[in-house]
């Protein structure tokens, strides 16, 4: 009787599973860009050129791992540090851990910011002391002159060594830039600061968990 009951139960489970799978599991194979999914914030930003960025920020790096950091337990502290509530796309965040063999070299985060003419995607590498190792704008929709200014190596390199506690005033703490590019430059600086704060929070979370 027990066997029959188990067999019957399996049949029911299989049938229910088949029903759910058959109806829910429709693969979205066509019109991929048009598939609508409710999202409160902007879509999460992918790391588009990990190999090149990793070599630029951490020349000895051999690999990276991506983990999701859920910062919900630190919302109060994040609000104080950011000066605003974290946006939906900022919690949870993807943190890319960069290693040289078994040794952790630093972390990388990617953030999308509001440029003057479209979204700008900022990639930032931070070492274990919380200092910027490098910044790369992996995607932007700015006119050529502004793009050139923003992508200029001296300006981006000036951000190296900064921490989340540093100021990011354009023309004071960071070198000035051509007048047409200032709006987008401020957006980039805001993004870099936010990423530094979020990465620092993720590091604190790691330390807490480790303990």
């Amino acid at each position: 009787m027990k066997f029959r009951f188990a067999l019957g139960g399996c049949v029911v489970l299989l049938a229910v599973g088949a029903l759910l799978f058959s109806t829910l599991g429709t693969p979205p194979d066509v019109y991929q860009p048009a598939i609508a999914r409710r999202a409160v914030g902007a879509p999460l930003c992918p790391w588009r050129q990990p190999k090149a960025d990793m070599q630029a920020f951490f020349p000895t790096a051999t690999r990276f791992e991506t983990r999701v950091a859920i910062l919900s337990s630190m919302l109060g502290s994040l609000r104080a540090r950011l000066g605003r509530w974290p946006a939906p796309e900022e919690n949870p965040i993807y943190v890319h851990y960069v290693f040289a063999g078994p040794r952790l070299l630093g972390r990388v985060a990617v953030q999308r910011v509001r440029g003057q003419f479209g979204a700008i995607e900022v990639v930032i590498g931070v070492n274990e002391s919380g200092q910027v190792r490098g910044v790369h704008l992996q995607r932007l929709r700015e006119p050529a002159a502004i793009s050139r200014a923003l992508l200029s190596q001296p300006w981006l390199s000036s951000l190296c060594g900064k921490t989340s506690r540093d100021a990011f005033r354009l023309g004071a703490d960071v070198p000035q830039i051509t007048p047409g590019a200032r709006t987008s430059a401020r957006a980039v600086l805001k993004g870099v600061r936010s990423s530094l704060i979020l990465l620092e929070a993720a590091r604190e979370l790691d330390a807490t968990n480790h303990r």
Partner: peptide, 24 residues
């Protein structure tokens, strides 16, 4: 479109540049 606006972080009144056609 709604998704395009989210991806480009645009709001009404914002500028939007087309790098391929150099048009704002």
């Amino acid at each position: 479109g709604a998704e395009a606006a989210e991806l480009e972080m645009r709001r009404p009144g914002d500028l939007f540049y087309s790098p391929e056609t150099h048009r704002t």
